[in-house]
Structures are given as C-alpha cells and as structure tokens.
C-alpha cells in the first residue's frame, strides 16, 4: 500500500455504516442468500428463452432507491444481466 492509498482509505466508521445500510435492506426484505440464489436462477431461465446471457456475469442484489411516488427511499431489486446475443 503506498502513501496515496493510505490517505484514500475510507475511515472504518464509514465502512461500517455503508456495510450496515446494505445489509439491513436485505435483512428487512427478509431475503436469505438461498432465496436470492433462487430468484437469480429463475431470472436466468426466463431470459434464456429470448436471449443468450452471461450467467457468470449476472449479479442481483437488493438495495435502496429513491421512490418516484412516495417520499424517501424504498427497497429495490437490481439485476445486472450482461447479454451475449439476442436470439431471433
């Protein structure tokens, strides 16, 4: 680690806050890693019918997002699905 990285390093207090914020969203959504894995597999199976996707590059997670209709943030399921080829 060089000097630059030491200065850039996040304070552990902020690290804790960020980790907790993410964790609590999925805790509150009552979504276990097993259920997330099932959701992921089901999504893959549905999309596979229409296009070829990169299953290893697929990433889903529950995060917070700003609501359009209500005030404040709401939990959201974010899926990042790299497409290899669209089938015709």
């Amino acid at each position: 680690m060089n000097l630059f990285e030491i200065f850039k390093k996040k304070n552990s207090g902020n690290v804790a806050k960020d980790r907790l914020k993410l964790l609590l969203v999925s805790d509150r959504a009552n979504c276990s890693p097993e259920i997330m894995e099932q959701i992921k597999n089901d999504i893959i199976n549905v999309i596979k019918k229409y296009m070829e996707i990169d299953c290893d590059g697929l990433d889903i997670q529950i995060t917070q997002t700003e609501s359009d209709t209500e005030n404040g943030s709401v939990p959201a399921l974010i899926a990042n699905i790299p497409i290899k080829e669209v089938r015709h």
Partner: peptide, 17 residues
Amino acid sequence: DMVKKGDMMTIEDVQDI
C-alpha cells in the same frame, strides 16, 4: 476519541441507519 478519528460511527450515523 474514536469518532473523531473516523473509526467509530457517529450518533447521527446510528440514528440515520
């Protein structure tokens, strides 16, 4: 002392979470 160094969450952080 730890909060000042950034190594402990602040009261506001905890309340915010």
